[in-house]
Structures are given as structure tokens and as C-alpha cells.
Design a protein around this nucleic acid. Structure first.
Length: 338
RNA sequence: AGGGGUGUAGCUCAAUUGGCAGAGCACUGGUUUCCAAAACCAGCGGUUGCGAGUUCAAGUCCCGCCGCCCCUGCCA
């Protein structure tokens, strides 16, 4: 029997990582692998729950793997798999879906938000059943590895809770302790906001000037930082600084530029801070940090075939664990052994 | 499968009897600003779902097809 991992975490393949993804999740992955055995996944089967293009998805998945390796996810320490190469996720999802109440799923906020939005708006958008089952697939992602812990931020708390309760129900229903309850690993990660709209989280969907790509060129990074929103109106009574400025400081500290950040904060308190200086410091830090990633990424791209072979090998390793889980699940669920 | 809707710029939508495809938002550039925002000025943006037809002329009318939404069914 293959050893079960301490930590499991997944990310959806998207066009390119931005600094919000990096500081919010990926940097933490790189940290965690130092002290834990980690399994990380690029979950392309989740990506098809929304309208998408197949060629784009394939390219995004390949790029995401490269991006993660460039950021420091280390095949020597961790297992990085592509979800669709481990079909057990899907099989487990189906079995678990029958241990999950319809009402429970319709109460998932992510799904509710989407449906509510539909009623408010034109109501002519395609909502796949896959979107509804999304949290169950997520539960399968975790339970397939019987992982001990999952790093979560606030927004994924509810989905992890569902995974725990599905696993619990499975155990109870089939009178076993097969699935350990995955613990939430609360790690404080900085929440990077949109540069153009600092009251909402940084995301690519909002548009190019809202985010900074992790592998963007220096000139582009500097330009985007420069055009970031600062003070847009009056500060609220209880506000220390405007969301835009606070966001710039968050980025600066996330880049570990603490001494610079302290100096500039002192200037801010004294009313001496020139935002152009702050922006210069932020841009410098980002350029320095991402420059390393960019050069590592170039090496990986040059060896694309090697990377692919490596990921297939790691996915096969992940599959060994998942297949082992499924052997047990099939037995409990009443299916014949394969 | 049948019935009813719907499809126009990235998004929301307009376009008279068939008569030059437009607006707002978004985006790009400029003025302004320590940097931004806001404001103002300028600009980019189109296979009108696809295909055929009628016409001097089709976003608009006729026929076929496709996608999506709602309803009623059918099959497993």
C-alpha cells in the first residue's frame, strides 16, 4: 500500500498565474513541501464546468504545470499530477454524489451565487450540471488521497466542510473508518486585491489592468503598478489607509520587502509618502521576485517534453494512491472487485 | 420530440414602412495628478448565430439549420 499524503491541494488551470494566485496559494505550496509530503493537482476536470475551449484547456493545463514548477513546486519533494490523468477522481465523484444530498449541494454558496445571479439577470446562460456537482468532485479530489489536511482560505471553507461531511457519511453508511477527516490547514496568506478595483480580489476575469501576471515582462509590470488605483475618495472614519494603497503595501510585504515597507509606512503616517515612490518600490520588488520565476520558466519551456514525461510519471504515482483508495471504496459500495 | 421565446461591438442593449449598423459601459491614447481616481477630449472596436432566397437595397421579409432559455412530453 502506498503512503498517504499529509497535504493535498489543487488549482484550476487558467491562462496564467497572477501574483494573487502566487501569494495566496502557490507560495504556500512551496513552503508546505519542506515539512510535509504533499500531493498537488492541476484540476482540469473542474475547468469544464464553465463554457470553455478544449484546445485552450489543454494548453492551459500544460502551462499551469510549467508555471507551478517554475514557482518552486519540487518533484523531488512533492507529487504534482494532472487530474484528468487520474480517472479515479471521476469514479469516486460519482459514488460520493450518491452519498450527498441534493439540498446540501443547492446550499453551496458558490452555486447559489451563480443561480441567484441568473434570476437577477437575463436568465439565458448555460449552467451545467457539472457546476452543481463541482463540490463533490472537489471532495473526491481530497478523499481519493485520504489526505490528512487541506490548506484552505475563507472562500473554500464551505467546500472543505462538505468534503468532511461526505467522508463522514460514507464511513457511517458503510460502517468503516476508511476516510480520515481532512483537516483544514489555515495558513495566513496575503489577499491581493485588484489594482484597478481594490475592493475586490485580484482576478483575471475582470480585465488586464486588474491583475499582474507572474511571468509578465518587466515593462508591463511597471506600467500596471503605475496605473494602480490609490485614493479614490474620502477615507472612512475608521479607515487607516485607502484600499488601493493598503493593497500596494500588502504586495510589498508579500515580496518580503519589509524594511522598505516599514520606511514607507512611516512616511505615510507622517503624511510624507509620495505614492509614486511607493509604486516604484512595489514594482522593483515584483520585478526582482518574478524575474527568478521567469528565467526558471524559460528553462522548463525549453525542455517541454521532459516536463511532460515527468508530470505523467508523477500523475501515475498519484494514480497509485487513488486506485488504492478506490479498491476500498468499490468494496464498501458493493461493487465487484476489478 | 412538440410549443413558446431569444441570438446585433468584449458586456448591456438600440436601429421607424426594408433605406449609410448606433449608444452606454469596457478598452487604448491625450489633458490633469507626486502616482492614480474622477472629469474632459480623441480613438479602437462588427461574418448582425450559420446558410440559402426575395429585392435596386435585408439586422429587418421568406425557407432551412445551429446555440441558449422556459414549458409540455418521450426513452433509458
Amino acid at each position: 500500500m502506498t503512503a498517504l499524503p499529509d497535504v493535498l491541494s489543487c488549482i484550476q488551470p487558467t491562462a496564467a498565474l497572477h501574483i494573487g494566485n502566487y501569494f495566496g496559494a502557490v507560495a504556500n505550496w512551496v513552503q508546505l513541501q519542506e515539512k510535509h509530503s504533499c500531493v498537488y493537482g492541476v484540476v482540469d476536470m473542474h475547468a469544464i464546468t464553465m463554457p470553455y475551449d478544449p484546445d485552450e484547456l489543454r494548453a492551459n493545463t500544460r502551462n499551469m504545470v510549467i508555471d507551478l514548477l517554475a514557482c518552486g513546486v519540487d518533484p523531488e519533494k512533492s507529487t504534482l499530477f494532472v487530474q484528468s490523468l487520474v480517472p479515479e477522481h471521476c469514479e469516486l465523484c460519482w459514488i460520493l454524489s450518491s452519498q450527498c444530498a441534493y439540498g446540501e449541494l443547492s446550499r453551496m454558496t458558490q452555486f447559489k451565487d451563480k443561480s441567484a445571479k441568473l434570476q437577477r439577470e437575463t436568465a439565458d446562460e448555460f449552467i451545467s450540471a457539472g457546476l452543481f456537482l463541482y463540490p463533490v468532485l472537489q471532495a473526491a479530489d481530497i478523499l481519493a488521497y485520504r489526505a490528512a489536511a487541506v490548506p484552505v482560505g475563507k472562500d473554500q471553507e464551505q467546500h472543505l466542510e462538505l468534503s468532511r461531511s461526505i467522508g463522514r457519511r460514507f464511513n457511517q453508511r458503510f460502517d468503516t473508518d476508511f476516510f480520515p477527516e481532512p483537516k483544514a490547514l489555515y495558513t495566513q496568506t496575503p489577499r491581493i486585491m485588484s489594482l484597478a478595483q481594490p475592493d475586490s480580489k485580484m482576478s483575471k476575469s475582470a480585465g488586464a489592468k486588474h491583475y499582474i501576471g507572474l511571468f509578465e515582462e518587466e515593462a508591463s509590470i511597471r506600467k500596471k503598478v503605475k496605473t494602480a488605483v490609490t485614493d479614490t475618495g474620502e477615507l472612512a472614519e475608521d479607515q487607516y489607509m485607502s484600499p488601493g494603497v493598503a493593497n500596494l503595501f500588502t504586495i510589498l510585504r508579500a515580496c518580503q520587502a519589509d524594511t522598505v515597507a516599514e520606511q514607507l509606512e512611516a512616511d505615510y503616517r507622517g503624511g510624507q509618502l509620495k505614492y509614486s515612490e511607493l509604486k516604484g518600490a512595489v514594482a522593483d520588488s515584483l520585478v526582482e521576485l518574478t524575474g527568478r520565476f521567469r528565467s526558471r520558466r524559460e528553462e522548463l519551456v525549453a525542455d517541454a517534453d521532459g516536463v511532460e514525461a515527468q508530470v505523467r510519471e508523477m500523475s501515475a504515482r498519484a494514480r497509485d494512491i487513488a486506485a488504492d483508495t478506490l479498491r476500498g471504496v468499490r468494496k464498501f459500495a458493493g461493487f465487484p472487485a476489478m
